[in-house]
Amino acid sequence: MATEDTKTADTSDDKRQSLGNSKSRYLDNILPMARIKKIMKMDPNITDNIANEANYMICTATEYFIRYLSREAYNLDKKALSYQSLAQYVQDEEKLDFLHQIIPNKITVRQYKKILKENKDKVFDSGSDVSSSSEEEAEEEQEDEEMSGEEESEDEK
């Protein structure tokens, strides 16, 4: 009989520990729940208070998504997780279209200038009456100067 009582006590302790772990797990998110709650409240469509359980679920789902995304990007290049592998994975996966503008592929300053030149040529070749103000031209020239400065520093490395 004594062994049965010991087994019962052990299992009840295990249950208490698992309950305790679930409560502590509730508080063990990597992402800060308060900050996520603030971000959610910035949405004008959310007028009601956000329940702690909902905030926890959003936090947990976000963490799982980040883990999934980083794991898949790491699998592209087994050596290390890099921005380039992350951007490549986002560009290749159709289901991640919503991230294309947030995580674009890295391009060099030369490639950027070439794209700008091609876009300008397309606009002028189409025959449309597109006139840019002198302010816009000055901003573009300033951006080109900043980009060329960055390009020179990259070439020095």
Rank of each mutant, 00 (worst) to 15 (best):
S132K: 11
R25W: 01
S126M: 04
K117P: 04
E53V: 11
I102W: 00
E93G: 00
L96S: 05
Q17T: 11
Q91T: 08
R110H: 10
Y89I: 05
I103R: 00
D28Q: 12
D125C: 08
P44K: 04
K117G: 11
D14V: 09
T3A: 14
I115A: 15
S132I: 14
S24H: 03
I30Y: 04
A51L: 10
K79H: 07
E136D: 08
E139S: 07
K95G: 11
Q84E: 11
L69C: 05
A2H: 13
E146F: 06
K38Y: 01
K106D: 07
D5H: 11
E146K: 08
E154A: 13
I66F: 04
C59S: 14
S82W: 00
F124E: 12
A87M: 00
M33A: 06
T3E: 14
T47G: 13
E72M: 04
K7Y: 07
L27M: 11
S128W: 02
I102D: 13
P32S: 02
K15A: 10
E118F: 06
Y68E: 14
F124S: 15
N105A: 14
E139H: 12
K157T: 12
P44N: 07
T47D: 04
I39T: 06
K113C: 14
T108C: 10
D14I: 12
S134P: 02
F98H: 07
L99M: 07
K37L: 02
L31P: 00
H100C: 12
D5R: 15
M40H: 01
E146M: 11
I36G: 01
T108L: 15
E152P: 03
K120S: 13
K78Q: 10
D97C: 08
D92L: 11
S85M: 01
R25Y: 01
F65L: 12
L19M: 05
S148F: 04
E143T: 10
R71L: 05
E4W: 05
T8I: 10
M57R: 09
E93R: 06
E94H: 08
R71Q: 06
V90Q: 00
E72T: 05
D13E: 08
E63Y: 02
T8N: 10
D5Q: 09
G149I: 14
Y68M: 08
L96R: 01
A54L: 03
V109T: 15
L116D: 07
P32R: 02
L27V: 08
L86D: 01
G149K: 13
S133L: 06
L31N: 00
S148Y: 07
R67T: 09
E143M: 12
E151T: 02
I46A: 03
V130K: 06
D97G: 15
S24L: 07
Q88D: 13
S82R: 06
E140D: 03
